[in-house]
């Protein structure tokens, strides 16, 4: 019991990290896109849990809503709209598969090489900074909103314009001629 309370965060990290990797592998390897989409949902939820572990509570909830809710429903509807009856006959992977796998392992090795040599100052960062506005102690949502609406108001407005453009684009593309 002592072990659990002492290392709970680490155990949760390994649990959700493992879940995310397994689900991601299933997304790429499964034949039926429906199963891929469900695995993707698992991956999104695991990543949301990892956000919670890094004091990004607001982002974790947004991840669940937008990815787990919105984007996932979009994927599932489109998979149901397109007719996939010839699924069994097709090849799953393109011809360049082996080359890509070798390059992927090399890339992963490169990442590992750099991360192994990286040192981050301070083992325990001052995370109370993530939960305060000025000197006042607030929740993570409030702090993110403060940063978003005060320091990043213009990018925020541009993002809303971007969403409008994407929506019009999706409607135009999805329209029947």
């Amino acid at each position: 019991m002592d072990f659990l309370t002492q290392h709970g965060a680490a155990l949760l990290f390994w649990l959700f990290a493992g879940g995310a990797v397994v689900c991601a592998l299933m997304v790429v390897t499964l034949r039926n896109p429906m199963y891929s989409a469900i695995s993707l949902l698992g991956c999104f939820l695991a990543v949301a849990a990892l956000f919670f572990l890094r004091h990004a509570e607001f982002l974790g909830v947004v991840q669940m809503f937008v990815y787990g809710g919105g984007i996932m429903v979009l994927f599932l509807f489109v998979i149901m709209l397109v007719n996939l009856h010839r699924l069994r006959e097709v090849r799953l992977f393109a011809g360049q598969g082996p080359v890509v796998l070798v390059l992927a392992v090399l890339l992963l090795g490169l990442f590992g090489f750099f991360f192994a040599g990286a040192h981050f100052a301070g083992a325990q960062p001052d995370t109370t900074q993530l939960l305060r506005i000025g000197a006042e102690k607030v929740g993570n949502t409030q702090a993110v909103a403060w940063a978003l609406y005060r320091d990043y108001l213009l990018p925020f407005e541009v993002a809303s314009l971007f969403l409008l453009v994407a929506m019009i684009g999706a409607v135009v593309l999805g329209r029947r001629q």
Binding site: L59, V62, V66, F75, F162, L163, G169
Partner: peptide
């Protein structure tokens, strides 16, 4: 996340 949502829709 915003960009991802737009990208998925388009």
């Amino acid at each position: 996340i915003t960009v991802a949502a737009g990208e998925a829709a388009v």
